[in-house]
Design a protein around this nucleic acid. Sequence first.
DNA 1: AATAAAATCATACTTTAGTATGACAGAAAA
DNA 2: TTTTCTGTCATACTAAAGTATGATTTTATT
Lengths: 149, 149
Amino acid sequence: MKKKVLLYGISLGVLTLILKFIEYKIFVKDHLMDIYMGAIALMFTVVGIWAGLKLTRKKETIVVKEVAVLVDRDNFVLNENLLKQLSISKREYEVLELIANGMSNQEIADKLFVSLNTIKTHSSRLFEKLEVSRRTQAVEKAKSLGLIP
Amino acid sequence: MKKKVLLYGISLGVLTLILKFIEYKIFVKDHLMDIYMGAIALMFTVVGIWAGLKLTRKKETIVVKEVAVLVDRDNFVLNENLLKQLSISKREYEVLELIANGMSNQEIADKLFVSLNTIKTHSSRLFEKLEVSRRTQAVEKAKSLGLIP
DNA sequence: AATAAAATCATACTTTAGTATGACAGAAAA
DNA sequence: TTTTCTGTCATACTAAAGTATGATTTTATT
């Protein structure tokens, strides 16, 4: 940020020098005054716009990103009809959620106080109903169907 | 947007008039030239900065609004700094994307025209860098970090 | 040119994941 | 009360996934 300000200051200085030069060379003729003024106005307007853009562009991106993250995951409502339509049971849906959180079958089994084999059968049936063959595909499909956030 | 341009044009005109006025009133004395120039420069710089801010601030708001309405997955921009910070290579990132799409290592290998083992090493290193141990966890973490939509 | 970093592949091995099949108990629906 | 569905679990097997190690080749970087 300080670099930007410095740069801006230096550009101002350089521009002023250039203007001085032009001034002492052409300014003898008075009717060139308007053009000169216009040039100055235009020049400094451009410089100003440039400076304004430089100073604000970064903040924009950050704002956009934060909002993008905030949105979507919080206000999610699942389609229960779809669950019934696919005949996915509550337990299978639980497993699906935990799979989507990146948990392994063993971790899910521990969390739900059931055996590893139980989780395997649940997930296997879930995959059939979702018409996939791996947990990663299941997560993808479930998200695209709006089953999970 | 067009309104802003118009407004800006009008302000320019008004300012020019004011300047003309000052010019014909004070300009008899030549040594006031420098002050006059400085004033012009300053004025238009301020105007420029103002214009720049106006033109960009609007964009910010619009973008934010659109993001809030649309959902998150469409306008996504990844944080390249984070990638470099985690020293994740291009290839590793490609693999990450395909993993997130639910593809198996074999499918990824076929798609990228490399061997299965290559994909395994890529994913393995990726997991180290993301500090996870399974592909599902990798996807979760990458999403929470904003590495993938 | 020399060093460093990426990308490639292999072999060997361990660990999860996933499938197939059968079984049993409890709840819900017919 | 049967039948069906759901949830539970086991055994046995196949298929992926993941780790460890080492090597070769591009490709940047210095």
